[in-house]
Design a protein around this nucleic acid. Structure first.
Lengths: 268, 268
DNA sequence: TAGTGGTCTAGACCACATA
DNA sequence: ATGTGGTCTAGACCACTAC
């Protein structure tokens, strides 16, 4: 599609139709500011893989030329994408596609912190893959992943330990098709956040997530894996993670031991 | 203080010193963009009470004239304040000081939602003030509120029920000086969020909060107030709330029953 | 020195709300 | 009809990074 900027001030042409809204299927309000339309185009470049994680996107001037709009309009589109953590600006260097890998802050989505001291002092988490198997989606999982019941999914179970203390037990479900070929070995061998592996190996970038948090008691199997007794209250953290376009790509259920750690949240 | 805008392009004057940074006490980098300085000035107007919650602030043009900068610079300052939920823009009407009162979303900081249906379907929470007493700050409370141990604080205890089911037990501590005159009666009589009462009656506006979340089991007193047994796991939500300038103004500890509700969080 | 993003301005026009 | 915030442009200069 072509972006037609509004005519400059001297022109008396009627308001140009919204860019990218072909004269078909009315009924939708179908108005959106230019920079929003630019944003959609940029999202497509991200989604299609034209711009890959950790690489630089074209400069603001280049994008302005490509879309035939002013630099300021491109800038506003980038501003919003940066606010959503899809892009990262670096003055003097360029604008880069955000990534879960090569980031000083590992585990961007993990909100569990130690009571005393900073996350770095306790060192990296030890990760133990318990299981990784292919099965058919249950009703719950199918709904969360926008699949049909019985569709192929992968289920992974793992334990994270801090300072050798088992602290997190996670079960997670992934849609079978995008993650074809994922095995326990590949998970074990990869050194880095799981979401970084998803990016580099499967081209799936997690962009946003919703969590539902409850307090629960563990069943006997969970007790064994976390080495706690059945009277130890745990945080149940149920997460659905999304890629671009709000497409759900992961369902996860974590049990957090919160006697020496806490889940941190900031309210604005 | 006066804001001196940088000279227009034709002038060859050296870069003007940062506005509002008098030629004293160097050593600080002491550079900040114009719009950041404007933002600081606007924060002062909010903090001083010149602009009160739910009222309109001067228009962008007026502010531009007052600070002697362009409308675009004021706009960028307002953009940031709006992103921080301190201001609310309403097209065609003006820009307003955000408030906890008269808001379609009551309880802006409460992240507990019912499992089935929307928050509105279960109707408003029933609130029961158990206690409101004046006492001396313990070590923990003093640290959280940036007071000295032994300073006067108010302690409030209350229970929130949804559909007549006790669901939240809260203890909260407030610094004695700003909240002088707060009593159980005034809390009971006020119909609306507690933070709205703090705004209108005490001029204290909560702007931001940090929460630490854990899973715990209740003690016998808590069991009685929430009408649960001692084996019911509960969410412990420890909150510190801040006014302008990151000044802590409330410490709160909530116990949430999460069998029919969940704590929702969104990750970006 | 060149290129990038960051700031600032000035002015035009649009969309929305109110009178 | 007027005033508000929202969008868009065009151009200048600054700050940071690399070569």
């Amino acid at each position: 599609m072509t972006a037609t900027p509004p005519p400059p001030s001297e022109s008396a042409a009627p308001a140009s139709a919204p860019v990218g809204a072909p004269a078909a299927s009315a009924a939708t309000p179908a108005f959106s500011p230019l920079y929003q339309q630019i944003k959609v185009l940029m999202l497509q470049s991200l989604q299609s893989g034209e711009w890959k994680p950790s690489t630089a996107i074209p400069s603001e001037m280049d994008l302005a030329a490509r879309f035939k709009v002013s630099q300021g309009t491109v800038r506003k589109a980038i501003d919003e994408l940066a606010a959503e953590n899809l892009l990262v600006r670096r003055q003097g260097k360029g604008t880069f596609v955000a990534t879960h890998a090569e980031h000083h802050v590992q585990y961007r989505f993990l909100k569990l912190f130690p009571d005393n001291g900073d996350p770095n002092s306790e060192g990296p988490a030890q990760r133990q893959i318990i299981d990784c198997k292919r099965l058919r989606a249950s009703t719950d999982v199918a709904r969360a992943l926008a699949l049909r019941q019985g569709d192929a999914v992968l289920q992974v179970r793992r334990v994270l330990s801090f300072a050798k203390v088992p602290t997190i037990l996670e079960d997670l479900w992934l849609p079978g098709t995008p993650f074809k070929g994922l095995t326990a070995e590949r998970l074990r061998d990869y050194d880095g956040p799981m979401y970084a592996l998803f990016e580099t190996e499967f081209g799936v970038r997690m962009v946003r997530a919703e969590e539902k948090i409850r307090a629960v008691l563990p069943d006997t199997e969970q007790c064994a894996l976390l080495q706690v007794n059945s009277q130890t209250p745990l945080l149940s953290v149920e997460r659905t993670a999304y890629t671009y376009n709000d497409t759900p790509m992961e369902m996860r259920r974590g049990l957090y031991l919160t006697d020496t750690h806490y889940y941190r949240n900031t309210l604005n």
